[in-house]
Nucleic acid binder design. Sequence first.
DNA 1: AATGAGCACAACCGCCCCGCA
DNA 2: ATGCGGGGCGGTTGTGCTCAT
Length: 309
Amino acid sequence: MGRIPCCEKDNVKRGQWTPEEDNKLSSYIAQHGTRNWRLIPKNAGLQRCGKSCRLRWTNYLRPDLKHGQFSDSEGQTIVKLHSVFGNRWSLIAAQLAGRTDNDVKNHWNTKLKKKLSGMGIDPVTHKPFSHLMAEIATTLAPPQAAHLAEAALGCFKDEVLHLLTRKPINFQGQHSAAALGNSFTDYINCKPEEKDATVENLSKAIQQEPQMMPATATFAMPVCPTMPGFQFSPASFANKGDASPWGQSVCTGSTCTAMDQHSQLHEKLEEVNGAESEATKEIRNLSNIFNSDCVVWDLPADDLINPMV
DNA sequence: AATGAGCACAACCGCCCCGCA
DNA sequence: ATGCGGGGCGGTTGTGCTCAT
């Protein structure tokens, strides 16, 4: 069984589009619109799958598209929206004039993800890697935490190395923080060739003192006054000499609360009924988040086609 | 100059959702 | 209520270009 294919794959051309094909498609759509994608290639005289035509049109031929490089502020916008929406590229792209979901996705995968990793930020959760490691210790039972933390240290070793050699971290944990703090201090102060060993020591510290981060311990970002306890200092994360908006926008800690509110967003969405599109509803809800006292958003309004604030 | 690695972008694939009969 | 088809979406792969060796 299975689904009927959208076209007969044997009879359709695949791969790069030629200028001639582009012209045929563009002129057909200019005359007849995009009503039925399955019929468009046939009527336009193209040996292409309807789906391929739709993709070519929406990602490349549409006259309202921007084709240049992404600006820095567009990048920031993507990062911030990604921290709220996750990999919902169409939703993110809808906020950037002239950009498609494919553009945004490609830009994220090729540039932004690496940029965040290089800054010590996990591109999936938008939290600092060190925060994630400590979270492992906080949320899991000691034996599991030890194993996972060790694995995480292995996975993120490069990022941790990059992070720690750039800027000391101001850990002020109240519970046996000395063990972890000393390990970090060792890490920062040791010679490059000793970094690996220090990572291992840090892992051991977590293993040996599983109670050092009790389950009740929480992290406080500066913009989260409601979360007392363990103090992580994102300001110390950012390179102080770096005046770029990247350091500020990603390290404000806003994403910490944004992720929490992301779940609220979905809960709220489920309550909403009516004729509004999902995007409209999400944006409506999102605007509430942006107005929240707890989150600092500095989205560049110029890049937004639906300014949310 | 040749070649391989890395990168950016275009295109494809398969799944899912939604409207309609 | 249900099944079908069109379209949308996100993940993945392919391709061509650039740069370093």
